[in-house]
Every structure is written in structure tokens, then in C-alpha cells.
Amino acid sequence: MRLISHPILCNYYVTYRCNATCNFCDIWEKPSPYITLEDAKQNFSDLKKLGVKVVDFTGGEPLLHRELPELLKLARSFGLITTVTTNGLLYPKRAESLKGLVDMLHFSLDYANKEKHDTARGVACFDTVMESIQLAKSLGERPDILMTVFEENIDEIEKIYQQITLPNNLVLILNPVFEYNEVETGPSLSSSTLDLLEKWAKHKNVYLNEGFIELRRDGGNHIDKPICKAGSTTIVISPQNELVMPCYHLGIETIPIENDLFNLYQSEKVQAAIAMEGRYDACEGCAINCYMQPSFAVEMNKYWWKALPSTLKYNRIKGTWKQLF
């Protein structure tokens, strides 16, 4: 049963540029401009009219955008919840200007070991993440640690949890790795790893959407009966101010927004693409978290029920539920 028919999330790619070269991501290889304040202001207005609640300022590395504070202020002026994930390299320099503007601030950290983390990210950023945690706390921010979980770093969860998140009273977000396009992300998560992740979801200050685990056990999205609702739940905007359909990772088509996102989204062309959500050949087996999370939220099924406890837990800890009403 469909509970929400309108889009609820915008993945706003402020740039594809990145100052890291993570071995499980290819976005840093792409040339890219930066979004403009003028385009963003019109888009925020249209996103609000379309029913979107959350804008994820993403990339690339979003802190590379020099006008990110202004973009965040604009989004919040339209009543939109803001979220930013960063590798931490630029946070010490930008922290003061970002203070109070990010509702959900995530620092990426995949290992409790400096050498291993820096190797995976292709740049020395472990120390700046540690510095960023203390600086953010001193400014009254409540950052989260976002850990991408692979087969090879599953044992790092305990170390990050005990050494970093608990002592700093942070939330540890566990993000199971997903495959996409031709990017090498390592072996699929084993059954034993999924079992272990499910146990971690019950820990204090740990957030893991258990719908992600259930979906992987079911073999991901299936095109004959799709779980993915990427097109109807998530609006993806590129640095070139284009609507990306049906999602960034598949990226079959990009459509210039031309200052009219509201009407473009409701156009016959876009609605036809939305009708194909989860049904393209490339959608078979997909388990991309950033589209499954909103997909689980809008339709009551077993994934909705699996996702519910973790969603309530995170919103209670962070207080973001108050902004949804």
C-alpha cells in the first residue's frame, strides 16, 4: 500500500569534483562545474511545492563548493531539512561558516586505523576527521560517523564504535556497500556479515536500516516486482542543473531544468520515466542505499516494517522528526 505519493528527498549534487580518490567510487574521475545560487533558489522553491522534505547536498565533496553555507541557508529558508556528508578534509576550514546550517552532518570513516582509512580514501584524511569531530562538538554540532561496510572491514565496526563513537557520544551509521555500474566495490556481503550487521543495528547509538539487510537477502530489487521507487521518491539534480533520471547511478537520461523543475517533474516525459522505476534491466539486483531508503519509507510492505525501528531510533536521537511536521 502506497503511503506517500510525492517525492520526499532531493539528492543535490553540488559538484562531482572531489579531493579524495576512494577506491569504491568513480565520481571523482568526472569533470564538473558547481551549482549556482540562482538555480538553487528556484529549485528549492519548486522542491518545496513538490513535497520534498530533505535535501542531501552531495557530490563529489560538497565542502569544495565555496557557497555551500549560502546554499544551506537558502534551503532552510524554504523549510527543507539539510544533510551533508564529508570526508572531513575541508571541515576544519569551513566549520564556523557551516555552524547551525546542517541538520544531519556526517563524517565518513571506514577504519579506526589511520593507515587503512587513508589508503581506502586515497588521501590522508583520518586525522582531519578526528579533528573535525572535536571541532564540530565544540561548535554545538551533533555529527554522525558514516561507515561504509565491506567484507574486509567488518571487524572495524567494533573498533570505531568503542574508540570513536561511544566516547564522543556520536551516532554510528552503518552503510552496507552496494554495487553499481562497473565500479569495483569488492565481494558482495556474505550471509554471516549480514547477520552480524543485523546484530549491530540493536546497539546503542548505532543506526542501520534493517531494510537494507532484508533486501540483500532477497537478492536486491527485482524488475518483475520492483521495490525501488527512486523516480517517485527522489529528485536527483546534477551540477549542470539537470534532472537525472531515473537515478544518478543508472543515469539513463539528463533533462535541463531551465528554472521550471515543478512543471518539468510533472511533464509526460518525466512521468513516463518514473513509471519505469525499478524496471530497467540494470535495476535487477540493485540495492543502492540512497534510493532504497526513501523507497522503504513510502510504501507499506515488509521493508517498511524492517526500516521502521531504525528510522524511529535515529529520529529520536537526532530530533529530526520534529521538522517533518
Rank of each mutant, 00 (worst) to 15 (best):
V14G: 09
T15R: 10
T15D: 08
Y16D: 06
N19I: 00
N19C: 08
A20L: 10
A20Q: 13
T21E: 15
T21P: 02
T21R: 15
T21A: 15
C22N: 10
C22D: 13
N23Y: 05
N23M: 09
F24S: 05
C25K: 05
C25T: 02
C25L: 03
D26G: 06
I27S: 05
I27L: 09
E29K: 15
K30F: 11
K30M: 14
P31A: 00
S32G: 03
P33N: 03
Y34A: 09
I35C: 11
T36K: 06
T36F: 00
L37S: 10
L37Y: 05
L37A: 06
L37I: 10
L37V: 01
E38N: 12
E38C: 02
Q42N: 10
Q42D: 12
Q42M: 09
N43Q: 11
F44A: 08
S45T: 03
S45D: 04
S45E: 14
L47E: 02
L47A: 08
K49H: 06
L50W: 09
L50D: 01
L50N: 04
V52C: 01
K53I: 14
V54E: 14
V55Y: 00
D56V: 13
D56I: 13
T58P: 10
G59L: 00
G60E: 05
G60Y: 06
P62C: 08
P62T: 08
P62S: 09
L63D: 09
L64G: 01
H65M: 04
R66M: 12
E67A: 07
E67K: 12
L68V: 04
P69V: 01
P69K: 02
E70H: 08
E70R: 14
E70Q: 15
L71E: 00
K73A: 11
L74E: 12
L74D: 04
L74P: 00
A75Q: 02
A75T: 08
R76V: 08
R76W: 04
S77P: 06
F78G: 07
I81N: 10
I81W: 03
V84L: 05
V84M: 03
T86C: 07
T86I: 07
T86K: 07
N87C: 13
N87G: 15
L89G: 01
L89R: 13
P92S: 12
K93S: 07
R94D: 07
A95Q: 04
E96H: 14
S97I: 00
L98C: 05
K99D: 08
K99V: 07
L101S: 11
D103E: 05
M104Y: 11
M104K: 11
M104L: 15
L105M: 09
L105N: 04
L105H: 07
L105E: 08
H106S: 14
F107P: 11
F107V: 09
S108Y: 01
S108K: 00
L109Y: 05
D110E: 14
A112K: 13
A112F: 12
K114M: 09
D118Q: 04
D118F: 02
D118M: 05
T119P: 03
T119E: 14
A120L: 14
R121Q: 13
G122I: 11
G122F: 05
G122C: 09
